[in-house]
């Protein structure tokens, strides 16, 4: 905050690269105790090009309106708490830099779509985690490992499911899916990604069970290949590719 003031006080001295500028944020607010409908509220924030949208939310909450409500934990793209819709696309607020946005127009920030809105940028994640739990996202290996110690895996076997191990469960993919918006029963991309992670793991013994679960009419077959999930994933997981591989595995009857 102090650096902002100093730079603003001495405009002649400032390097253009580190001059703060005013960015307008339009945030979709909703206070369940007061509002019947969400409403847009605008905030002007002094920002640097290297700041992130999360920094803007912090400045608003700390300096302008303490009632602004959002989730964030690690603030470095690992915990997956701050997925939100920024300029109409699902992004992590902590990984979206101001320099990558068009600041000549206001930046729209709103909660992710398709999950029940609780307050401001916070949604009820329970339906999302319920789908996640349903695919049994944990290693099922009942046989004793060979040699009695480790379950050995080759580099190629590990590589097979490497992409889907990156998921941080931020719900950016699931809440970008048009099928999920209109039909909350659909497992959603994130659950399928996490099923994929174990279906194609050579150490796991219950791929068949997961394939059966996803062969449901609300399972992988609801995917309409809109690619919104792959585009939204902050970890760059090829989500649609993973779903396609699960579809193929179901048709083959094995991973």
């Amino acid at each position: 905050m102090s650096t902002t003031t100093i730079a603003a006080d001495r405009p002649g001295n400032a390097d253009p690269a580190i001059t703060p500028f005013t960015v307008t944020f339009l945030i979709r607010r909703f206070d369940p105790e007061v509002d019947e409908e969400p409403r847009w509220q605008d905030f002007d924030v002094e920002m640097y090009a290297t700041d992130r949208v999360l920094d803007a939310l912090h400045k608003i909450k700390w300096e302008q309106d303490g009632s602004l409500t959002f989730r964030r934990s690690c603030a470095h793209g690992i915990c997956g708490s701050d997925a939100m819709r920024i300029n109409g696309r699902n992004r992590l607020a902590c990984k979206t830099l101001i320099k990558d946005l068009d600041i000549s127009k206001p930046i729209y920030v709103e909660a992710i779509k398709g999950l029940p809105l609780e307050k401001d940028l916070i949604v009820d994640m329970e339906p999302f985690f319920a789908s996640f739990r349903e695919v049994q996202p944990f290693l099922i290996a009942n046989k004793a490992p060979e040699g009695g110690k480790e379950r050995i895996q080759t580099v190629a076997q590990r590589e097979r499911f490497d992409d889907t191990t990156k998921c941080i469960l931020c719900a950016a993919c699931t809440s970008s899916c048009p099928v999920f918006w209109t039909d909350g029963q659909y497992f959603g991309p994130a659950a399928i990604v996490n099923a994929h992670r174990f279906i194609f793991d050579s150490r796991d013994e219950d791929a068949k069970v997961r394939l059966d679960i996803l062969n449901d009419k609300e399972g992988v077959w609801r995917c309409r290949t809109t690619f919104n999930c792959s585009e939204a994933c902050p970890r760059g997981i090829q989500v649609t590719q993973a779903i396609a591989e699960v579809k193929q595995a179901i048709m083959r009857g094995k991973p």
């Binding site: 969400p38 847009w40 605008d42 109409g88 709103e110 048009p178 809109t226 919104n228 649609t240």
Partner: peptide, 22 residues
């Protein structure tokens, strides 16, 4: 009564900006 919305003419959420696939 709902708090008066300050500026935006768009009370609803924005349209999701999907790409070619969507």
């Amino acid at each position: 009564a709902a708090k008066k919305s300050t500026t935006s003419p768009r009370p609803a959420g924005t349209l999701y900006r999907g790409r070619e696939g969507m």
